[in-house]
Design a protein around this nucleic acid. Structure first.
Lengths: 134, 134
DNA sequence: AAATATTTGTCCGTATGTATC
DNA sequence: CGATACATACGGACAAATATT
C-alpha cells in the first residue's frame, strides 16, 4: 500500500505500484484502470494525488484517459524502423505543442529530428519510430 | 492576459504566454521566472494553475525549478557529437528516474538509446549529445 | 551564526464543467 | 434523464530547500 510517512511522495508511490501492476499484466492492455475515486478510496489518498500518479503513467505512454470513459491501459505499438543516410545528424528533443498537435504525439513522448547537411529530413515521434543507420 | 471564458484551459493559456516570452527572450537563459505567487496574482489565476503551466514548460525542457531557489530559464548547451556505427538502432525515450539520477539528466530531457545487434551500446542524454551516422 | 522570509513541493477538500454510458 | 468518470480550478495548509537579513 502507500506509506504515508516514508518521505516518498504519495503520488510517486502510487504511480510505481500501478506501473508495476501494468507491467506484470494485472492490468492488461485495453483494460480499464479502477476509477480515480476508487483508487482514491482503496489507497487512502486524495483524488488529486491519484490524478498526479495517473498523469505520470500517461506521460510514459502506459495508459490513455478519456473523460467519461475511464483510463485504459494502452496497447503496445509496433515500432516502425526508419533508415537514415550516412552523415545524418540525429537529435532528440521534446516536441513543440504544434508538433504534438499536428503529429498526434501523446504526452511525454520525444521526437527525433534528422538533418542532413543542415537540411531537415524528418521528425520522428519516438513512440512510432526507431531509426537505423543505412 | 488570461481569458477566463474562452474555453481554453487557463494553465494552457498561461503556459503559452510564458513559453512565447521565453522564446522571445523576455525571460532570458538563467533568468528567474516570477515566483508562482507573483504569477498567480498577476494573471489572476490560482497557484495550482500556475504550477500546472510551469510544469508543462519543465516537461518541455525550457525551465528548471528548485525548491527555495525559484524557476530558472535553462541555458542552451553545446552538443557533443557522437558517432554511431552502421546498422545501429537508435531509439529515443524519456529516461527512467534511476537514469535521471545516475546520469544527472534534468527534467524534460529525453535520451537516445543505441543498440547494435540487440546489444546496448550507449545511452545519450539529448541535452548533451547529438548522434551522427558513421 | 541564527532567525526570518521567500519559493517550490506535496496534499487535501470542494466545486463545477464536460463527456460517456 | 440520471449516474459515472475524467478535467479544470480554487483555496488552504504544511513541509522542505534556499535566500536574505
Amino acid at each position: 500500500m502507500i506509506d504515508l510517512h516514508s518521505g516518498v511522495p504519495r503520488h510517486l508511490q502510487l504511480a510505481a505500484q500501478l506501473r508495476s501492476r501494468i507491467i506484470a499484466g494485472v492490468y492488461a492492455p485495453s483494460d480499464l484502470l479502477p476509477s480515480e475515486t476508487r483508487l482514491s478510496q482503496e489507497y487512502g489518498v486524495g483524488r488529486g494525488t491519484v490524478r498526479r500518479a495517473v498523469s505520470l503513467l500517461r506521460a510514459e505512454g502506459l495508459v490513455d484517459a478519456a473523460s467519461g470513459r475511464g483510463t485504459r491501459v494502452r496497447e503496445p505499438v509496433e515500432l516502425r524502423r526508419e533508415s537514415v543516410p550516412r552523415g545524418a545528424i540525429i537529435q532528440a528533443r521534446m516536441p513543440t505543442p504544434e508538433e504534438r498537435a499536428s503529429l498526434g504525439i501523446p504526452e511525454g513522448v520525444p521526437v527525433q529530428v534528422v538533418t542532413v547537411g543542415g537540411r531537415l529530413r524528418g521528425v520522428y515521434p519516438a513512440n512510432q519510430f526507431e531509426l537505423t543507420t543505412a
